[in-house]
Write a protein that binds this DNA or RNA. Structure first.
Length: 411
DNA sequence: CCTCCACTGGAAACCTAGGCTC
DNA sequence: GAGCCTAGGTTTCCAGTGGAGG
């Protein structure tokens, strides 16, 4: 409140602030400079292209598996496997949208939920329910109750429903396969309506964690998506760049570099497409006429930088304090030392300190986010602990955490 | 080869904040 | 309003452990 008032006062009294002039010059440059992009949308993550090169086999298989719905019978459940950025989601969306277009008179609902983004079992089901038009409170119902409402809706409306669960491996790892079991079991008793599952998994070994009954039902049909080769990536990128940019803006060598950089990261097409978009944005911002190799390199650095900053910013307060405690040891440290430093920081800030068990757990979470390296090491007589090291550049770290008013006092 | 440190990490219980049904 | 349910974060308890040093 105080902060906002101070800000408003500042703006209203200082009309000659340099801000408007800078905006003018940005606008002027944007108006005068030739836009590099013709169609930026085709480089957005949610864009589904009309043509998915090198995925014809997968498209045909999935179309075949799902086609029974066209004459009113239940399609088999389907599992799609492959690493990130191999086109699983795009292919699934593509085939399903074609299927829906084919069945324009309705009778088919397609629901798509990313289970990792939804977060919990309950929220996955709630999102599915919402997409069927059933309203579910964000808490308060049992899982069984939500399931019951979903099945009731499908049965009453006599619809065929296809439920796509992206990153299904996440759900199974975190919550087990109970929900999947219920789904596969229930599909018999809702006839003549039907429910088919399409599971998308990044993890090839995820099947091992499934109950055999679930596996035999869910894995009726399977399609594997191999990583794109560098040549395939190059082809895909060239095609996209051609639509996205004005002619001659994006150099061939920059396309090749994007393909090579993403190719070394297991053929991840999503990352490759992000890379050309951001390289274009970098060039645009700098007022360049073409996008060359150096723009791609800067784009790659920017992506990494943004990822880290975003991860830092969205951290809960306690995790930030723990990170701050880690940063006090520039040569690396261990759990015990971090805990002591964390305790004194908490006292200084005036927050209740968590237990060491919890701090240990949070350190493991920070390790997963790539903000910290926490490897379990044994020091013989001196026990077993985590060797902890901050992985973020100090300046990025300080700049981002200093934004948090509760932490400002510790800098 | 054995001991023993400084934890790790699993499991269960607890807490808060919410909603539903009767 | 009681009694049930949920999520999600946390605490409590404790068995387990890799390996340096005796």
């Amino acid at each position: 409140m105080v902060g906002r008032r101070a800000y408003l006062t500042n703006v209203s009294t200082d009309n000659r602030s340099p801000l408007p002039d800078r905006i003018d010059s940005i606008f002027k440059r944007a108006r005068e400079g030739k836009a590099l992009f013709v169609n930026r949308n085709v480089l957005m993550p949610e864009y589904v292209p009309d043509r998915l090169p090198f995925r014809e086999n997968q498209i045909n298989t999935i179309a075949e598996v799902l086609s029974p719905v066209l004459h009113g019978s239940k399609p088999s459940n389907l599992l799609l496997y492959g690493k990130t950025g191999t086109g699983k989601t795009a292919v699934a969306r593509y085939v399903l949208s074609r299927l829906q277009a084919e069945l324009s008179k309705g009778g088919l609902t397609v629901s798509y939920v990313n289970t990792r983004i939804a977060g919990t079992e309950y929220r996955v089901l709630a999102e599915f329910a919402h997409s069927l038009g059933v309203s579910i409170p964000f808490t308060g119902l049992s899982i069984g109750e939500v399931m019951g409402r979903i099945f009731k809706e499908i049965q009453q409306k006599r619809i065929h429903s296809i439920f796509v669960m992206d990153e299904i491996d996440y759900l199974v790892k975190a919550y087990g396969d109970g929900v999947l079991y219920e789904f596969t079991r229930a599909s018999d008793r809702i006839s003549p309506a039907s429910l088919s599952l399409v599971g998308i998994s990044n993890d090839l070994k995820f099947k091992e964690e499934l109950d055999p009954r679930v596996l035999s039902s869910l894995g009726e049909e399977e399609t594997v998506f191999p990583p794109y080769t560098v040549e395939e990536l190059r082809e895909i990128l060239r095609e996209r760049a051609m639509i996205a940019f004005r002619k001659g803006v994006f150099s061939d060598s920059a396309v090749n570099l994007c393909a090579a950089m993403a190719g070394t990261e297991h053929g991840d097409a999503r990352r490759a497409v992000d890379l050309i978009r951001i390289a274009g944005e970098v060039a645009e911002r700098e007022g360049l006429q073409t996008v060359d190799d150096s723009c791609v390199k800067r784009a790659s650095e920017k992506m990494e930088h943004d990822r880290v900053e975003e991860a830092l910013r969205s951290l809960p307060l306690q995790n930030k304090i723990i990170l701050l405690a880690v940063s006090r040891f520039d040569t690396g440290t261990n759990t015990g030392e971090v805990y002591l430093a964390y305790n004194s920081l908490s006292k200084k800030i005036g927050t209740e300190a968590l237990t060491q068990r919890r701090v240990s757990g949070i350190l493991a979470e920070l390790d997963m986010l790539g903000l910290v390296e926490a490897a379990v090491v044994s020091k013989g007589r001196r026990g077993r602990t985590k060797r902890i090291r901050l992985l973020i550049p100090q300046d990025t770290f300080n700049k981002t955490l200093a934004e948090d008013p509760t932490l400002a006092a510790t800098f």
